[in-house]
Amino acid sequence: MLHHTPLDASELMQRIANDLIDSYDEELELEIEDRHVTEEGVVQMTDKQARQAYFRELFRLQGELVKLQDWVQAHRQKVVILFEGRDAAGKGGVIKRITQRLNPRVARVAALPAPNDRERTQWYFQRYVAHLPAAGEMVLFDRSWYNRAGVERVMGFCSDDEYEEFFRTVPEFEKMLVRSGIRLIKYWFSITDEEQHLRFLGRIHDPLKQWKLSPMDLESRKRWEEYTKAKETMLERTHIPEAPWWVVQAVDKKKARLNCITHLLGQMPYQEVPHPPVLLPERVRHPDYLRQPVPQSMIVPEVF
């Protein structure tokens, strides 16, 4: 068993502060970090250089994702990417970085809430099927049908029979998706007990992220070992050649994002799609056109 040296109060608050900065939008992150250096002088140059290297690589990968998007659209591909992992494992962060520069009509995110009363009576996979892609689309599932193998199993939201039926059905379901022409990629984001603890503390101390903490998340902390056993069973019983699992080491958020995106790009035989040069046409002007003024009462006040 691994034993972790507990952080003292100052180290803990510094860790939480660093994690808060990590969560903000990419351009804002860089601006905050630069200001932090110039005004307070507490961030070492090596830290700044590491961040800049991260952003350079992230932007390069996002450029490749745009090429992938063009290829998916031009070749009418159908792509499904599942993101699974414990609460606060970083799934949402990597999904955000993948979709940040993409067309939401091509790359969309499916983050389904808990099933309602009607959906609970449907075939288990039915509500997920409705979100599968058409030709030329990518769908990123922020949690997926594997809820049954994880939270539903641990929290007792499904019966033993339903749980076993899921494992009988899911390999055939995924093989059917692949035979239909869907590219199916499954990621599990792996973090340590200590790292999840720290990230939960970060959410507690950040008013912009407290909404992410649900009673279910807090309960998951108590049931760490049960979730571990459920995860191990899930990987063992659903790791199939047609749709294998890929485990992302996610204790370091930035490395996890870069590694996951790099791996995702490597799963697709995409090529850059040539585009004709874009020429901006001259605006057509008519001498009798008169622009009407907007009533002052409709103008948003310029507070800033």
Rank of each mutant, 00 (worst) to 15 (best):
R56E: 13
F59R: 05
F59P: 00
L61D: 02
L61A: 08
Q62F: 06
L68Q: 05
V72D: 00
A74M: 13
A74Y: 13
R76C: 06
K78P: 06
K78C: 04
V80D: 01
V80I: 10
I81G: 10
F83Y: 14
E84R: 06
D87G: 09
A88E: 09
G90W: 10
G90F: 07
K91H: 07
G92K: 08
G92P: 04
G92R: 04
G93D: 13
V94S: 09
R97H: 07
I98L: 12
I98S: 08
I98H: 14
T99K: 05
Q100G: 08
Q100I: 03
N103R: 00
P104L: 02
P104F: 03
A107D: 02
V109F: 05
V109E: 04
A110Y: 04
A110L: 06
L112V: 11
L112T: 11
P113S: 11
A114W: 06
A114R: 11
N116M: 04
R120D: 08
T121N: 14
Q122I: 12
W123G: 12
W123T: 11
Y124C: 11
F125H: 01
R127N: 14
R127K: 09
R127D: 11
L132S: 03
L132T: 01
A135D: 13
A135R: 13
G136V: 02
E137W: 03
E137I: 06
E137G: 01
E137S: 03
V139I: 04
S144E: 03
S144T: 10
W145N: 10
Y146M: 05
G150R: 09
